[in-house]
Design a protein around this nucleic acid. Structure first.
Lengths: 173, 173
DNA sequence: GGTAAGTCGCTTAGCGCTAAGCTAAATACA
DNA sequence: TGTATTTAGCTTAGCGCTAAGCGACTTACC
């Protein structure tokens, strides 16, 4: 009879133990999940930042390029569609587009059907860069994942996270 | 034979389908995990922000108060200890402490053993506020969690996240 | 005991974001 | 048809953070 997983302690376990010592009345169960989610998001964010830095862009800029790439040919969306997809204000979007346009990774052109609007389109250079960046980002994520979990547990984790995301994200405030 | 969980689609599934259409060569498995983690962190962050807003503080300020609270009596740490624990630069820490000291939730006093250093201590008001805030925050997290998963699946999720966090966070850069 | 190196908290400049408000253009309504 | 409302993207002010660098102070080493 061997325990298959040596139950190592992580930083969130340490925090929960501290709470138990000073506030034993608290139910800290939810921290086991959301505390780890929060730390994982930050840690992987830092790793992705590094992965993209080699290509001269940040994570925010990558998200814009990737959204255009996913849209498929002709890789064109409006600033409005982009800011809605990326949950960003129009002010923030203007800044990202300025930077990416300066780097010649995309271009802005007038919307032929609406003189208020613009079309944002990936350039050849932007298309090439995002195709390399998405590979680098996925490699970084896959590496962290396979170092920790086998295929079956990855699938379990993905399913649990899906169910949690569906109830956590959607309740429109 | 009934499928126990109707496999609903979430926003991350939609993004992965988009990638499959334009880049079928990509292995997007890792996005199933880290894409959801990233969105969950943001969604719960927004909820916590709201929970604390009723008490007049933001999430960053709560983290400072909570760290002092967890330290136990006399609820005292140095700015250096706080910024290390919260993964914050000293500049950012100065700003948070300024704000919290102005609100009389903590006070700064000289370190008797090191004339360079300070001691940061929770006031009575700060202790009272953080004890109410931690309850509100845990309630928000518990609500989201129990709406999605039963006790057994919460335990599975916590274990999977622990293993992933241990390999993802620790590789010191 | 004197000097070099390290550490303390703070200041400043710069970045990326939000919130609020702007003008121009499209749309709905009497 | 004219007027009111909505929607487009941009600008500005303010916030909270990092990175870099400061003076004050402590520690390590010879």
């Amino acid at each position: 009879m061997s325990s298959p997983q040596p139950p190592r302690k992580d930083p969130v376990d340490a925090i929960i133990e501290q709470w138990a010592a000073v506030r034993p009345d608290l139910d800290t169960g939810a921290m086991e999940v959301f505390g780890r989610i929060s730390r994982l998001a930050r840690a992987m964010g830092d790793r992705l930042e590094k992965a993209y830095a080699g290509l001269g862009i940040g994570r925010g800029e990558f998200d814009v390029l990737a959204t255009l790439r996913r849209a498929g040919e002709p890789y064109t969306l409006s600033p409005r569609q982009l800011s809605a997809t990326l949950m960003l204000t129009t002010g923030g979007m203007t800044g990202r587009l300025d930077k990416l346009e300066r780097a010649a990774l995309l271009r802005r052109s007038p919307d032929p059907h609406d003189r208020r609007g613009l079309q944002v389109t990936l350039t050849e250079k932007g298309l090439d860069l995002v195709d390399r960046a998405v590979g680098a980002g996925l490699a970084a994520q896959t590496e962290a994942l396979t170092a920790a979990l086998d295929t079956e547990r990855v699938g379990q984790l993905a399913d649990l996270l899906r169910d949690l995301l569906l109830t956590t994200e959607t309740p429109r405030s």
